[in-house]
Each structure stands twice: as C-alpha cells, then as structure tokens.
Amino acid sequence: MRWRGRRQSSNVEDRRGQSGAPGGFGRSGRPMQIPIGRGVGGGGLSGIVILVVLFFVLRACGIDPLQILEGGSGPANPQVTQDEAPGSQPSDAEAQFVSVVLAETEDVWNGIFQAEGQTYTEPRMVLFTDQVRSACGFASAASGPFYCPGDSRVYIDLGFFRELSQRFGASGDFAQAYVIAHEVGHHVQNLIGVLPEFNRQRQTMGQAEANRMSMRVELQADCFAGIWAHFTAQKGLLEDGDIEEAMNAAHQIGDDTLQRRTQGYVVPESFNHGTSEQRATWFANGLRNGRLADCDTFNNPI
C-alpha cells in the first residue's frame, strides 16, 4: 500500500507504555469479553433485518436514518475521562502506518455519508501495550483488536500484527489495513444502528442463536472493509498483491481455519465470525462495487 507521505489521522491516541489495568493483566492472561469486534455473540434476525431494510429504504427516499436512530446508537461524542485522555501522536513507522490507514477510512466514510446528505462521526483509535481500559471494560492484548461502541474507539496492540504474520500466516501491510478497516466497519454499524439493535437483542438469546447473528454482524464489517478497499484502489494507493494480502488475512482468521489450527477440529455451532470462505466472500462483495447495498448480510444467505 502506498501510504508514506499521506495524511495521518488526528484521531489516534498513543497509550503504549501506559498502565491500562490493575493486576498485571497481560498478553497471556484471559481476555475480557468485549461487546463487539472480538468474540461477540448475536442472534434473532427479525429486529436487525427490519432495521437494515429501513436504513436502505430511507436512504433511497432521501431521509436521514441517523436522525431517526439518534439516541439508539453509541455516544457520538463520548465524554473523555482522565484515563481516556489522548496520548502523544505516534512517531514510529508502524504507528504512522495505522494512522494513515485510519485517515483513509475517514476519507472514504466521510464521502459515503456526505453523498447521502449525512454526517460521519469519526472514531478514535487507541494504541496500547498488553492491556487497556475502555468503556467496555479492561482488555488484554490477547483479545486482539476490538471496537468499543461505548466510547466509539478502535483498540489495538500493534503486536497483533506480528502475531497475524508469524502465527497465522497473514503478512503484508494491506492485511493489517484490512484488520483496521474491519474494526472501523463496526463503527459504521454503530452509527447506522445495527450494533445497538444487535446488543439489545442478544440479551435474550441463547448462545447458538447469538453466534449465528454475530456471524452476520462480523461478515457485514468484512464487507464494509471491502468497500473501503474499493475506494482506496480507485485512489491508486494499492500495490500489486495488496488485495491478495487482505483476502488471505480474511481466510486465515476464519472460525474454521482458526479452530483447525488451535484444536485440530471444528465446531460449527460455535462459529461467531464466519468461516474463511464467508469472510473472504463478503470482503470481496464490498470490494467489487463499493456499495452499501451489497453488504446486507441480514437479508441474504451467508
């Protein structure tokens, strides 16, 4: 990806080296359950299906669904506590890269929302080491990158990218960009009301039903990442092999591939992010035309 010399986002908080949680809750500790982005549950199609259908219908009619959903999604401008105060802007190349990727997602989603007469509220990205405190609770780096709808922030320990390459065989800068774009996709879901409805419904769901709905939420975020890649390609920022890197990353972190690697067998009823094929397919759906309508995982087979 041609990223050097491009604008860096001003929405990055560098908390690396800060103490994020008490008790030495480090990389080998048991991760917290984060409401969305990693290890989520979900289920019960009806409410989310209706909401997504309404979103696309209202957009087509020139009505702003964000105004209708106001108050139902996570806080657009959350209060920043002392623990959440922004850190210094990153100066190392690895952090500068993710800052540029975040800036590129801002450009794409601002453009998409503006084209519909809407305003895109940009998320913040928090860089941390080993452990972090968010509005969703304490988490360790073992949780992996995650999005917290409670404070509209994407959290990532950059060590995850080394693990992605060395342990999971998904190397390359665009594989990393795909991960960031996926988490930003959850932020878009939060803005349009998908996440609030999902989190409301799953309180009354059984685990199997919750897992099925979680897959649809996660695959839509993959599709939104594909939309970002579509417009990034149009800007001439992609290099040979970039799309292949993203597709490989999507494949390597599919539930079935991960389970085979870690335990030697798969348990389909426990899937909550999607299979390797599903994740790559929905990323490709967004990439193909860059249209939100191609990312309706709730009304189409997955």
Score class of each variant (00 low, 15 high):
D242Q: 03
D240I: 03
S152C: 09
Q263L: 00
I192V: 15
T232S: 12
Q252W: 00
F161V: 04
V188G: 11
F224G: 04
C223Y: 05
A142K: 04
F198N: 15
F224C: 06
A249V: 07
G264Y: 00
Q207H: 01
S171C: 02
R153F: 04
G236K: 08
Y265K: 03
A233F: 03
Q166S: 14
F174T: 11
A210Y: 05
D151Y: 12
D157P: 14
F160T: 07
H182M: 08
F231W: 10
G206W: 00
A139Q: 02
P149C: 04
G264A: 00
L219H: 06
E209L: 14
G193V: 05
V188Y: 05
R200C: 04
G206H: 08
L238W: 06
M213K: 09
A139C: 11
D255L: 03
G150Y: 02
R167D: 14
G172Q: 01
S214L: 11
T204D: 13
N248H: 01
V217M: 12
I180V: 15
I156M: 15
R216W: 07
V266I: 13
F128V: 03
G241N: 04
N211I: 13
P149F: 01
I253S: 05
M215F: 01
W228K: 00
V179S: 13
Y155W: 06
E245F: 08
Q207A: 08
F146R: 03
D157Q: 04
Q220N: 13
A225S: 15
M125F: 10
I243M: 15
I227G: 06
L238G: 02
G185W: 14
A141L: 08
E218R: 01
D242C: 10
S171I: 01
L238I: 01
Q203L: 14
S140G: 14
V217P: 11
T262E: 00
I227E: 00
A233R: 13
Y178A: 15
G193R: 06
L164P: 07
Q201A: 13
M205R: 15
E218M: 04
C148K: 07
V184L: 13
Q259A: 12
S134R: 09
E197G: 03
